[in-house]
């Protein structure tokens, strides 16, 4: 059996050189002789399909399957009275609470405040991250000035900067936005900078041969080549803006989702905490999907590679 498979595969690669042709012909002749008797099983072997090792086709809406299952288990356990309503309230309780919070106006205000904080911090961090990465990635002087500094900044846990920033910027909105901006800019900078400086030297040669100016080289080769790396950083930055928010809204806030959740903790309202977590989760998911969508549009040339 094994000899059959080897001969069929080798005889396809005949064209390389005369010497290999010679051995292959001799080999297959011998093998055919040996397998004369086993003709029937040989045919069976050939029609049988190989076991595929790729994971196969993706299931429809596969990303939602897991979360949906969690919700179902949660609902069933609550209905069966297996969960302490004080610790984990039932899904419908959470829904009812969010309805109440929405209609009395507190939830819309909290969401808006949180969105504003995350949005401004993200915008600031994105701008800073891109500007710094471009400067460091495209000029040696910029690299010398910026890269070491950012690497140092990265080594300091950003949340550890909170006390200092409160003293510098006051305990209002400014320091919150500044901290979120720092959480966001670091992954964006790191990924974009490494993508810019890791440009394939073969493309540098090509640009020289084609007589591209420095500006066109950057615009037509360096930047498009760095976009995949930029999107990796962007997704990390988006998630980071939500992570920073939860912590920051504990500190001298009068509204926002984090504030709402910590107030609920004081009154033992687990349902309100779950509403907050749910909304954080939804926002995180939606913003990440939005970035993915943009990525797919912008990097459409990659799709052919993945399919």
């Amino acid at each position: 059996m094994t000899t059959t498979t080897t001969t069929t595969t080798t005889s396809t690669s005949t064209s390389t050189s005369t010497s290999t042709t010679a051995t292959v012909v001799a080999g297959s002749a011998g093998a055919v002789e040996a397998l004369d008797g086993a003709e029937g099983s040989l045919a069976a072997r050939r029609t049988r399909r190989r076991r595929g090792l790729a994971p196969g086709k993706r299931l429809p809406a596969s990303r939602l399957t897991g979360p949906a299952l969690v919700v179902v288990v949660w609902a069933v356990a609550s209905a069966a009275g297996q969960l302490d309503p004080g610790a984990i309230p039932a899904p419908w309780t959470v829904l009812r609470t969010s309805g109440q919070l929405w209609s009395d106006g507190t939830l819309p205000t909290d969401i808006l405040t949180s969105l504003q904080r995350a949005g401004s911090g993200f915008a600031l961090g994105l701008t800073a991250g891109v500007a710094l990465a471009l400067t460091a990635g495209l000029s040696r002087i910029g690299e010398a000035l910026i890269d070491g500094t950012v690497q140092l900044n990265r080594a300091i846990p950003t949340l550890g900067l909170i006390p200092l920033f409160i003293l510098w910027l006051g305990i209002g909105e400014t320091f919150k936005i500044a901290i979120i901006a720092i959480v966001v800019y670091i992954p964006i900078y790191l990924n974009l900078y490494s993508a810019l400086s890791g440009i394939d030297h073969r493309f540098v040669e090509l640009a020289e041969v084609q007589g591209l100016s420095k500006l066109r080289f950057i615009r037509e080769i360096v930047i498009p080549g760095a976009l995949p790396g930029f999107f990796v950083g962007l997704r990390l930055g988006v998630t980071g803006s939500w992570l920073g928010l939860v912590v920051l809204e504990q500190i001298n806030a009068t509204s926002g989702l984090g504030y709402m959740m910590f107030q609920a903790q004081n009154y033992g309202r687990t349902d309100v905490i779950l509403v907050g977590l749910l909304i954080y989760g939804i926002f995180g998911l939606v913003s990440d999907s939005a970035v993915r969508l943009i990525e797919r549009r912008v990097l459409s040339w990659r799709r052919t590679l993945n399919s």
């Binding site: 040669e205 090509l206 037509e220």
Partner: peptide, 8 residues
């Protein structure tokens, strides 16, 4: 290698 830019 053909050295075509994959994004163009």
């Amino acid at each position: 290698d053909s050295r075509l830019l994959p994004w163009r």
